[in-house]
C-alpha cells in the first residue's frame, strides 16, 4: 500500500471536495481518500497497482485537475 498526496486545482466548495473524494474512492485499489478544500490537496491510500493516470482521470471526471502528485 502507498500513500500519495495530490495537489488539486479548481475546488471552491465543500461539495467539490466530497465529490472528488467519492470519485477517487470509486477507483479500484483506492482504499482511502481524504480531500481538503483548505489545502487544495487530497491524501489517498492506494494499492500498488493503481496508476497515477487512473487517479488523474477520476479527479478530471468530476471537473477538477490534478496538478501534482507527491
Amino acid at each position: 500500500m502507498r500513500k500519495l498526496k495530490l495537489n488539486i486545482e479548481g475546488m471552491h466548495c465543500a461539495s467539490c471536495a466530497s465529490n472528488i473524494e467519492r470519485s477517487l474512492k470509486n477507483v479500484k485499489g483506492v482504499n482511502n481518500a481524504n480531500v481538503s478544500l483548505m489545502l487544495k490537496k487530497g491524501i489517498i491510500e492506494i494499492e500498488d497497482f493503481v496508476s497515477e493516470e487512473d487517479l488523474k482521470k477520476a479527479v478530471a471526471k468530476v471537473g477538477y485537475k490534478v496538478i501534482k502528485i507527491e
Partner: peptide, 16 residues
C-alpha cells in the same frame, strides 16, 4: 455554469 451542468449530468452534484 460549466461545473454545475457537468455535475448535473455526471450525478456528481455540487454547489454550482
Amino acid at each position: 455554469i460549466k461545473s454545475g451542468i457537468r455535475g448535473l449530468f455526471s450525478f456528481y452534484f455540487n454547489m454550482d
